[in-house]
Structures are given as structure tokens and as C-alpha cells.
Nucleic acid binder design. Structure first.
Lengths: 233, 233
DNA sequence: ACCGTTTGTCCGAAATATCGGACGTCGGTC
DNA sequence: GACCGACGTCCGATATTTCGGACAAACGGT
């Protein structure tokens, strides 16, 4: 299952066996068992398998069972529809950033969601909010050093990151441009627990050439949503 | 996992063991393994377990991988936001009706979704569309006789069902009131394949006292969405 | 038509998980 | 303070699954 999630594509059984180092005969038995239970599904008739409907049912049960996520679903759907851009709800998972909810905007430009994919904290706007309760030392210990290197090889200076973080805390939102992707801007606002600690973020992913006025509207929208999601406020 | 899905609530390990007839020690080992993999999650500190985040990630991958469902997500989110009522996307699973997508409306009146729960076809509005390619004989063979009995004991006459079905086909939508629940009206429109066969439905679940004008707007909305979802049209 | 590769199934030996019971701990009740 | 039931862990015997190799069928390129 993990392998399929990483590949994010229907995969042939023999390939799964080879790439995970599992004996072929074992993988065939395993997959057949899981297909019967509808955890997996045979696709296309070309012998590939991928996740089946049972995963969706169980996943929905999970979403409904977590209070904050259930509320966030409503907010994310609402603001994505309102603004027409891709909206997300994100948290930390260990020392990585994680997209929990993704609602694509009307713009059809990125189909694949990144739900469940872990990303280095410094690569993201939300990351600057999610660690803003730590001081410089704690952050250095918490975020692996290599995570400050972007996919294109550029390196984010540590004090630049800390500066972003402090500005974000005073402004109540954060904006980053051309971090992971040259043409994308991210806008994020913090969801905070009663102690003021950022436990999640809600954000927009928009083209970098979006007008400043439009971005201001989005920032206000995000702040309002984030406030509604912050427990005990 | 199936047991948790049926119960739809965090459950204590010992209860799962008892109710599924599994030895207690086995269930403890099993649950601990799955908790480590984040397929399950310990809740509340009261020793209950329920689905974990991994199920959500895998479920999202499934939704993204099925073309019709991916498109339906956009439609359902859109019309739920537009109208402010609960919208759903449904299909058949064997001889049962199944909610695949559920987007709650602004009305907060039913929190729990029914995603992945199977329901007898005659209990639903959509059911009258999903079998409308069959003749009376085929339907009699396809739908178990006991499924024509509603939860409150009333029985739906077979020719009444057939009549509903034919009316639905000519009108392009179906409306049912007080079927499963005395105060609820369902409005549904068919998603059809190029051969004209109903492969899914998109529907609203609204209070029975919703005005006729509002319902007409919803019906038009549903028909437009269903048309957009119908492949090869 | 040929041959090398991939696919899916089958088998017995070896590795692993399950089972059922025993046991210590924890909270409530009388 | 003694008793009771529920929780969680541990253990050896037993049942199940995995493994690796063998094999036939299907496929693709020359």
C-alpha cells in the first residue's frame, strides 16, 4: 500500500514485487486477497492494481471522526468555491509538512493532489507558521539541515527563514513565491490552539501573477477561516 | 476494519475482539501493528481505536484515480455550496445502493455521512434511476424481495416502484419524500453512459418542507451537473 | 515461425502469526 | 481492605502464510 501511495499510479503486480523486494508469488497472493476485500482494485485490464473503494470508505470515516478536520473540510470547500482557487488544509507530521485536505479551484491546472505526501517544512509557506512557537535553536534541531535545500538546488538561508517566520507571526499570514515551483504563490493563515500554538494552516495555491488586490481578498478570507477553525476562540 | 466501518465509532480493542470472535491477544497484536502503520489510531486515551490518517491518504488516491469520481467531486462540492443543501454522488454496488460522495450543506442537521454504507435500492430516490434499464422481470430477479420493505415496516408495492421508475425516465429526474425518514425529500438526476444506461446519480437531500420553487431550482441544478458528468456527451 | 521475456499459478519446506490460557495491574464496589 | 471484572502482556503449541523455484501460457520482437 505504501509503495502504491508513493508511486501514485496503478502499478503492475510484478513491478510492485520487484520494487519492494517481495517474492512474486507472495505479491500475487497478497494482491488477490486485497482485491477481494476491495482494498485494491484491478485496473484497465492491463494487469495493474491501485487502491480500491474500501480505502475511500475507511478514509471518509477517519475524516468524519476528527473534529478539526471535519470542520476544516467545510471551510476549505467554502473558500475554494468562493475564490475559485485551490485551497488546502495542512499540518505537521513529524518534522515534515503534510497536506491533509485539498480542494482544487476552478482553474484546472493541477489535477493531482498531494494529500498524504510529506514535504520539507522550509519548502512551504505554511511551514513558516507551523514552527513559529520554536526559537532558532529548536528549529535547527527540529528541521533536518538538508530540508533547507529546494528541489532546484537553491538553499534557503536559516535567518531568512526565521525572518519570514517572525514577519508571518506579526502579520497573521504568510506569503511565499516561487519556492517549490517558479510560477506559484502560496498564501497561508494559522489555525491556533487556545495556547496560541499553530496546529494547522489553511492556504491558497495560486499563480504567481495573481493581482495584489485579489491576493488581499484571499488573505482576508484565509484569516477569517483560520480564526473559525481555531479551537476555543 | 470492516467491523469499525460498520460501527462507525472508535471502539475498544476488547470489544472488537469479542464482537468479531477473534481471540483477545490476537486483536491486541493486530491493532498494535496497524496503529504503527497509522492505518488505525488510538483515540481519547480511553483505549478505543479507529481509522488513522493512512486510510485517508489511500482513499484520496483512490478518488483521484477514478475519472468519473474525480469529476463528480467538483460537481458535488459546487452544487452543495451553490444551494447550501447536502449533495451526494451515488452508484450501485451489487444489488445495493451506495453513497460514494457526500458534501454536507450549510444546514448542520446531519453530521454523519453514509459513505460506504449499502442501502436497499427501493429505499432511495436514486435507486429508481439506477435500475431503469431493466424490465419488471429483471428487477424482480435483481432486487431481493425483502429490500422492498422500508425500515418502518411499510412495504413498497412493486408496480408503484416501476411507475416511479418510468416517470423518472421521462422527466429526467426523480423525487421521493418520507421514504427512509419521514421528514426528508430526495431529489436525484441520472448520470448516463453513451448507451444511455444510468451509471450513477447526483442528488440533494433536503427537508420535506422545502418550497416547490426551491426544489425546482435544485432539480435544474442536478440535471445540469448530471449532464456534465455523463461521459461522451 | 522462432526465441526470449513476462505473466500468472502451483507446490512443499521454512518462517511467521494466531490461538488460548495464564498472569499481574488497575479501578470501582461493597 | 477484600473482591471482582476489565485491561494489557506474555508464552509455547499449532495453524497459516511466505518463500523460492518450477512450470505452462501469453506476448513481442526479429
Amino acid at each position: 500500500m505504501e509503495h502504491l501511495h508513493d508511486r501514485r499510479a496503478p502499478t503492475r503486480i510484478a513491478d510492485i514485487a520487484r520494487d519492494t523486494g517481495t517474492p512474486r508469488s507472495t505479491m500475487y497472493e497478497l494482491v488477490n486477497t486485497l482485491v477481494e476485500a476491495r482494498w485494491l482494485e484491478l485496473r484497465d485490464g492491463d494487469g495493474t492494481v491501485y487502491f480500491g473503494p474500501a480505502m475511500h470508505y475507511y478514509g471518509s470515516d477517519y475524516l468524519d471522526s476528527v473534529d478539526l478536520i471535519r470542520k476544516a473540510r467545510v471551510e476549505v470547500a467554502h473558500i475554494a468555491e468562493l475564490v475559485g482557487e485551490t485551497a488546502q488544509f495542512c499540518t505537521l507530521d513529524g518534522d515534515k509538512y503534510l497536506v491533509v485536505l485539498n480542494e482544487p479551484g476552478r482553474r484546472m491546472f493541477r489535477i493531482s493532489s498531494e494529500i498524504g505526501i510529506k514535504v520539507p517544512i522550509p519548502w512551504t509557506a505554511s511551514g513558516r507558521l507551523l514552527v513559529d512557537h520554536m526559537d532558532a535553536d529548536e528549529i535547527r534541531r527540529f528541521i533536518p539541515s538538508e530540508d533547507f535545500t529546494l528541489p532546484d538546488g537553491r538553499r534557503i538561508a536559516e535567518d531568512e527563514f526565521l525572518e519570514d517566520m517572525h514577519r508571518a507571526r506579526t502579520q497573521g499570514y504568510v506569503r511565499t513565491t516561487a519556492l517549490v515551483d517558479r510560477f506559484t504563490t502560496c498564501l497561508a493563515a494559522p489555525v491556533r490552539d487556545p495556547a496560541g500554538r499553530c496546529i494547522a494552516t489553511i492556504c491558497f495555491v495560486v499563480p504567481a501573477d495573481t493581482t495584489e488586490e485579489a491576493q488581499q481578498v484571499m488573505i482576508d478570507t484565509l484569516k477569517a477561516s483560520a480564526e473559525r477553525l481555531s479551537p476555543g476562540r
